[in-house]
Protein backbone atom coordinates (compact mmCIF):
# COMPACT_ATOMS: atom_id res chain seq x y z
CA UNK A 1 0.00 0.00 0.00
CA UNK A 2 2.57 2.44 -1.12
CA UNK A 3 0.70 5.05 -3.07
CA UNK A 4 -2.03 7.41 -1.94
CA UNK A 5 -4.29 5.91 -4.56
CA UNK A 6 -3.96 2.36 -3.30
CA UNK A 7 -4.35 3.55 0.28
CA UNK A 8 -7.64 5.18 -0.66
CA UNK A 9 -8.91 1.99 -2.25
CA UNK A 10 -7.79 -0.02 0.73
CA UNK A 11 -9.79 2.21 3.01
CA UNK A 12 -12.93 1.76 0.94
CA UNK A 13 -12.41 -1.99 0.83
CA UNK A 14 -12.15 -2.42 4.59
CA UNK A 15 -15.08 -0.14 5.36
CA UNK A 16 -17.78 -2.87 5.32
CA UNK A 17 -15.76 -5.04 7.66
CA UNK A 18 -15.17 -2.17 10.02
CA UNK A 19 -18.85 -1.21 10.02
CA UNK A 20 -19.97 -4.79 10.69
CA UNK A 21 -17.42 -5.22 13.47
CA UNK A 22 -18.32 -1.89 15.05
CA UNK A 23 -22.03 -2.73 14.90
CA UNK A 24 -21.38 -6.17 16.26
CA UNK A 25 -19.52 -4.82 19.24
CA UNK A 26 -21.11 -1.46 19.82
CA UNK A 27 -24.79 -2.35 19.59
CA UNK A 28 -24.79 -4.95 22.40
CA UNK A 29 -22.52 -2.79 24.52
CA UNK A 30 -24.71 0.29 24.14
CA UNK A 31 -27.85 -1.77 24.77
CA UNK A 32 -26.34 -3.22 27.94
CA UNK A 33 -25.37 0.23 29.06
CA UNK A 34 -28.90 1.47 28.27
CA UNK A 35 -30.65 -1.31 30.20
CA UNK A 36 -28.32 -0.96 33.16
CA UNK A 37 -29.89 2.41 33.91
CA UNK A 38 -33.45 1.01 33.73
CA UNK A 39 -35.53 -1.03 36.06
CA UNK A 40 -36.36 -3.65 33.47
CA UNK A 41 -38.06 -6.87 34.54
CA UNK A 42 -39.86 -8.12 31.45
CA UNK A 43 -41.89 -10.94 33.04
CA UNK A 44 -43.50 -8.59 35.50
CA UNK A 45 -43.98 -6.01 32.81
CA UNK A 46 -41.82 -3.44 34.56
CA UNK A 47 -39.86 -1.06 32.38
CA UNK A 48 -38.98 2.15 34.16
CA UNK A 49 -36.53 4.61 32.85
CA UNK A 50 -33.67 6.28 34.48
CA UNK A 51 -33.21 4.77 37.87
CA UNK A 52 -29.72 6.22 38.00
CA UNK A 53 -27.07 4.02 39.54
CA UNK A 54 -29.56 2.01 41.56
CA UNK A 55 -28.82 -1.21 39.65
CA UNK A 56 -25.10 -0.74 40.10
CA UNK A 57 -25.48 -0.04 43.78
CA UNK A 58 -27.58 -3.17 44.23
CA UNK A 59 -25.22 -5.35 42.26
CA UNK A 60 -22.15 -4.05 44.06
CA UNK A 61 -23.90 -4.13 47.42
CA UNK A 62 -25.08 -7.72 47.24
CA UNK A 63 -23.03 -10.18 49.24
CA UNK A 64 -22.61 -12.43 46.20
CA UNK A 65 -20.74 -9.81 44.18
CA UNK A 66 -17.47 -9.80 46.08
CA UNK A 67 -17.59 -13.57 46.43
CA UNK A 68 -18.09 -13.91 42.69
CA UNK A 69 -15.15 -11.62 41.99
CA UNK A 70 -12.93 -13.71 44.25
CA UNK A 71 -14.14 -16.95 42.69
CA UNK A 72 -13.43 -15.52 39.25
CA UNK A 73 -9.93 -14.48 40.24
CA UNK A 74 -9.14 -17.84 41.85
CA UNK A 75 -10.38 -19.68 38.79
CA UNK A 76 -8.40 -17.40 36.51
CA UNK A 77 -5.23 -17.63 38.56
CA UNK A 78 -5.48 -21.38 39.06
CA UNK A 79 -6.07 -22.13 35.40
CA UNK A 80 -3.35 -19.73 34.27
CA UNK A 81 -0.89 -21.25 36.71
CA UNK A 82 -1.62 -24.82 35.71
CA UNK A 83 -1.67 -24.16 31.97
CA UNK A 84 1.49 -22.05 31.92
CA UNK A 85 3.57 -24.31 34.15
CA UNK A 86 2.16 -27.47 32.59
CA UNK A 87 2.57 -25.93 29.14
CA UNK A 88 6.25 -25.19 29.69
CA UNK A 89 6.79 -28.70 30.98
CA UNK A 90 4.97 -30.33 28.05
CA UNK A 91 6.65 -28.06 25.51
CA UNK A 92 10.09 -29.07 26.78
CA UNK A 93 9.05 -32.70 26.71
CA UNK A 94 7.59 -32.50 23.19
CA UNK A 95 10.71 -30.75 21.97
CA UNK A 96 12.80 -33.84 22.71
CA UNK A 97 13.40 -36.17 19.80
CA UNK A 98 11.06 -39.04 20.69
CA UNK A 99 9.54 -41.83 18.67
CA UNK A 100 6.12 -40.99 17.28
CA UNK A 101 6.58 -37.28 17.92
CA UNK A 102 4.01 -36.26 15.31
CA UNK A 103 1.22 -38.39 16.77
CA UNK A 104 2.01 -37.33 20.31
CA UNK A 105 1.80 -33.69 19.28
CA UNK A 106 -1.61 -34.19 17.65
CA UNK A 107 -2.85 -35.99 20.77
CA UNK A 108 -1.69 -33.17 22.98
CA UNK A 109 -3.47 -30.61 20.85
CA UNK A 110 -6.73 -32.60 20.64
CA UNK A 111 -8.49 -31.26 23.78
CA UNK A 112 -8.47 -27.82 22.25
CA UNK A 113 -10.95 -28.98 19.61
CA UNK A 114 -13.49 -30.32 22.10
CA UNK A 115 -16.36 -27.95 22.80
CA UNK A 116 -16.44 -26.65 26.39
CA UNK A 117 -19.88 -28.12 27.06
CA UNK A 118 -18.83 -31.52 25.79
CA UNK A 119 -15.58 -31.57 27.69
CA UNK A 120 -17.33 -30.53 30.89
CA UNK A 121 -19.87 -33.33 30.43
CA UNK A 122 -17.14 -35.84 29.71
CA UNK A 123 -15.21 -34.83 32.78
CA UNK A 124 -18.32 -34.79 34.96
CA UNK A 125 -19.68 -38.16 33.93
CA UNK A 126 -16.69 -40.13 32.77
CA UNK A 127 -13.79 -38.88 34.86
CA UNK A 128 -15.08 -37.33 38.06
CA UNK A 129 -18.19 -39.35 38.82
CA UNK A 130 -17.67 -40.67 42.36
CA UNK A 131 -19.12 -44.10 41.51
CA UNK A 132 -18.37 -44.83 37.88
CA UNK A 133 -15.72 -42.24 37.05
CA UNK A 134 -12.31 -43.30 35.88
CA UNK A 135 -10.68 -41.31 38.68
CA UNK A 136 -12.86 -43.14 41.21
CA UNK A 137 -11.64 -46.45 39.79
CA UNK A 138 -8.03 -45.29 39.96
CA UNK A 139 -8.51 -44.23 43.57
CA UNK A 140 -10.18 -47.55 44.34
CA UNK A 141 -7.37 -49.44 42.65
CA UNK A 142 -4.97 -47.89 45.16
CA UNK A 143 -7.34 -48.75 47.95
CA UNK A 144 -8.26 -45.14 48.59
CA UNK A 145 -11.70 -43.70 49.20
CA UNK A 146 -12.94 -42.28 45.84
CA UNK A 147 -13.18 -38.51 45.91
CA UNK A 148 -16.50 -36.95 45.12
CA UNK A 149 -14.86 -34.30 43.01
CA UNK A 150 -17.67 -31.95 42.13
CA UNK A 151 -19.15 -31.84 45.61
CA UNK A 152 -15.99 -31.98 47.74
CA UNK A 153 -13.65 -29.77 45.73
CA UNK A 154 -15.92 -28.15 43.15
CA UNK A 155 -13.82 -25.09 42.36
CA UNK A 156 -10.67 -27.15 41.96
CA UNK A 157 -12.53 -29.60 39.73
CA UNK A 158 -13.69 -26.84 37.42
CA UNK A 159 -10.16 -25.42 37.33
CA UNK A 160 -8.97 -28.88 36.28
CA UNK A 161 -11.51 -29.09 33.47
CA UNK A 162 -10.69 -25.62 32.21
CA UNK A 163 -6.95 -26.24 32.44
CA UNK A 164 -7.35 -29.45 30.49
CA UNK A 165 -8.96 -27.46 27.70
CA UNK A 166 -6.41 -24.69 27.66
CA UNK A 167 -3.25 -26.66 28.25
CA UNK A 168 -2.93 -27.50 24.52
CA UNK A 169 -3.06 -23.86 23.57
CA UNK A 170 -0.33 -22.97 26.05
CA UNK A 171 1.75 -25.97 25.02
CA UNK A 172 1.48 -25.15 21.34
CA UNK A 173 2.54 -21.52 21.72
CA UNK A 174 5.36 -22.40 24.11
CA UNK A 175 6.55 -25.28 21.93
CA UNK A 176 7.00 -23.01 18.92
CA UNK A 177 8.83 -20.56 21.17
CA UNK A 178 11.16 -23.25 22.47
CA UNK A 179 11.85 -24.45 18.96
CA UNK A 180 13.02 -20.98 18.01
CA UNK A 181 15.68 -21.02 20.72
CA UNK A 182 19.15 -21.10 19.20
CA UNK A 183 20.70 -24.38 20.31
CA UNK A 184 24.14 -22.76 20.31
CA UNK A 185 22.97 -20.61 23.23
CA UNK A 186 22.26 -23.71 25.27
CA UNK A 187 25.58 -25.22 24.26
CA UNK A 188 27.39 -22.03 25.16
CA UNK A 189 25.71 -22.10 28.57
CA UNK A 190 26.68 -25.73 28.97
CA UNK A 191 30.30 -24.90 28.25
CA UNK A 192 30.06 -21.97 30.65
CA UNK A 193 29.35 -24.49 33.38
CA UNK A 194 25.57 -24.07 33.70
CA UNK A 195 23.77 -27.25 34.73
CA UNK A 196 20.25 -28.14 33.57
CA UNK A 197 18.48 -25.99 36.18
CA UNK A 198 20.52 -22.80 35.65
CA UNK A 199 20.20 -23.36 31.90
CA UNK A 200 16.43 -23.49 32.27
CA UNK A 201 16.28 -20.46 34.54
CA UNK A 202 18.80 -18.24 32.76
CA UNK A 203 18.34 -19.19 29.12
CA UNK A 204 15.08 -21.02 28.38
CA UNK A 205 12.73 -19.13 30.69
CA UNK A 206 13.80 -15.63 29.56
CA UNK A 207 13.50 -16.80 25.98
CA UNK A 208 9.94 -17.93 26.70
CA UNK A 209 8.93 -14.73 28.49
CA UNK A 210 7.27 -13.25 25.46
CA UNK A 211 5.34 -16.39 24.60
CA UNK A 212 4.23 -16.73 28.22
CA UNK A 213 2.95 -13.16 28.07
CA UNK A 214 0.92 -13.94 24.98
CA UNK A 215 -0.51 -17.10 26.56
CA UNK A 216 -1.50 -15.26 29.72
CA UNK A 217 -3.14 -12.37 27.92
CA UNK A 218 -5.12 -14.49 25.49
CA UNK A 219 -6.18 -17.02 28.09
CA UNK A 220 -7.28 -14.27 30.47
CA UNK A 221 -9.67 -12.90 27.89
CA UNK A 222 -11.31 -16.28 27.42
CA UNK A 223 -11.14 -17.53 31.01
CA UNK A 224 -12.94 -14.48 32.37
CA UNK A 225 -16.02 -15.48 30.43
CA UNK A 226 -16.12 -19.17 31.32
CA UNK A 227 -19.69 -20.33 31.53
CA UNK A 228 -20.45 -23.77 30.06
CA UNK A 229 -18.10 -25.60 32.42
CA UNK A 230 -19.91 -24.17 35.45
CA UNK A 231 -23.37 -24.52 34.01
CA UNK A 232 -22.88 -28.21 33.21
CA UNK A 233 -21.22 -29.18 36.47
CA UNK A 234 -22.23 -27.23 39.57
CA UNK A 235 -24.69 -24.69 38.21
CA UNK A 236 -22.87 -22.03 40.17
CA UNK A 237 -23.40 -23.75 43.50
CA UNK A 238 -20.82 -24.73 46.09
CA UNK A 239 -18.76 -21.59 45.77
CA UNK A 240 -18.21 -21.76 42.03
CA UNK A 241 -20.24 -18.73 41.08
CA UNK A 242 -18.09 -16.49 38.95
CA UNK A 243 -19.05 -13.02 37.88
CA UNK A 244 -20.20 -14.25 34.49
CA UNK A 245 -22.40 -16.85 36.10
CA UNK A 246 -23.79 -14.35 38.61
CA UNK A 247 -24.86 -12.06 35.77
CA UNK A 248 -26.51 -14.97 34.01
CA UNK A 249 -28.46 -15.76 37.18
CA UNK A 250 -29.59 -12.20 37.62
CA UNK A 251 -30.86 -11.97 34.07
CA UNK A 252 -32.26 -15.43 33.49
CA UNK A 253 -33.34 -16.65 36.90
CA UNK A 254 -34.35 -13.43 38.59
CA UNK A 255 -35.49 -12.06 35.22
CA UNK A 256 -33.90 -8.75 36.14
CA UNK A 257 -32.37 -7.41 32.95
CA UNK A 258 -31.46 -4.06 34.45
CA UNK A 259 -29.53 -5.58 37.31
CA UNK A 260 -27.82 -8.10 35.02
CA UNK A 261 -26.81 -5.38 32.59
CA UNK A 262 -25.28 -3.36 35.39
CA UNK A 263 -23.34 -6.47 36.34
CA UNK A 264 -22.28 -6.89 32.72
CA UNK A 265 -20.88 -3.39 32.60
CA UNK A 266 -19.09 -3.98 35.90
CA UNK A 267 -17.62 -7.17 34.47
CA UNK A 268 -16.33 -5.27 31.46
CA UNK A 269 -14.69 -2.75 33.77
CA UNK A 270 -13.21 -5.51 35.90
CA UNK A 271 -11.86 -7.31 32.83
CA UNK A 272 -10.22 -4.10 31.68
CA UNK A 273 -8.66 -3.53 35.08
CA UNK A 274 -7.22 -7.05 35.02
CA UNK A 275 -6.03 -6.61 31.45
CA UNK A 276 -4.28 -3.32 32.23
CA UNK A 277 -2.79 -4.85 35.36
CA UNK A 278 -1.48 -7.86 33.40
CA UNK A 279 -0.16 -5.67 30.61
CA UNK A 280 1.75 -3.69 33.20
CA UNK A 281 3.41 -6.70 34.77
CA UNK A 282 4.07 -8.87 31.78
CA UNK A 283 3.46 -6.53 28.86
CA UNK A 284 6.89 -5.01 29.15
CA UNK A 285 8.13 -8.28 27.72
CA UNK A 286 6.28 -7.49 24.53
CA UNK A 287 8.04 -4.31 23.56
CA UNK A 288 11.54 -5.74 23.71
Amino acid sequence: MATRHSRGIARIMITPAVIVLLGWMLVPLVMTLWFSFHDYRPQRGIYECCVGFENYARFLGSSSFLKAVFTTLIMLGGSLGITVIGGIFLAILLNQPIWGQGIVRVLVIAPFFVMPTVSALVWKNMMMDPVNGILAHVWAAFGAEPVSWLTDVPLFSIIMIVSWQWLPFATLILLTAIQSLDSEQLEAAEMDGAGPVPRFVSIILPHLARAITVVILIETIFLLSIFAEIFVTTQGGLGTKTLTYLIYERVMESQNVGLGSAGGILAVILANIIAIFLMRIVGKNLDR
Binding site: D182, E187, E190, M191, A194, G195, S202, P206, H207
Partner: peptide, 21 residues
Protein backbone atom coordinates in the same frame (compact mmCIF):
# COMPACT_ATOMS: atom_id res chain seq x y z
CA UNK B 1 33.90 -35.58 30.72
CA UNK B 2 31.07 -33.10 30.28
CA UNK B 3 31.94 -29.83 28.47
CA UNK B 4 32.04 -27.77 31.65
CA UNK B 5 34.68 -30.03 33.20
CA UNK B 6 37.14 -29.74 30.32
CA UNK B 7 38.19 -26.19 31.08
CA UNK B 8 37.78 -25.11 27.46
CA UNK B 9 36.01 -22.01 26.21
CA UNK B 10 34.27 -21.78 22.88
CA UNK B 11 33.33 -18.89 20.61
CA UNK B 12 30.45 -19.84 18.34
CA UNK B 13 29.79 -18.78 14.79
CA UNK B 14 26.46 -17.21 15.79
CA UNK B 15 28.22 -15.70 18.86
CA UNK B 16 25.53 -17.40 21.01
CA UNK B 17 25.24 -14.41 23.33
CA UNK B 18 22.42 -14.41 25.86
CA UNK B 19 20.08 -11.79 24.38
CA UNK B 20 18.25 -10.85 27.58
CA UNK B 21 21.41 -10.16 29.59
Amino acid sequence: SPPAKRGLAMVFQSYALYPHM
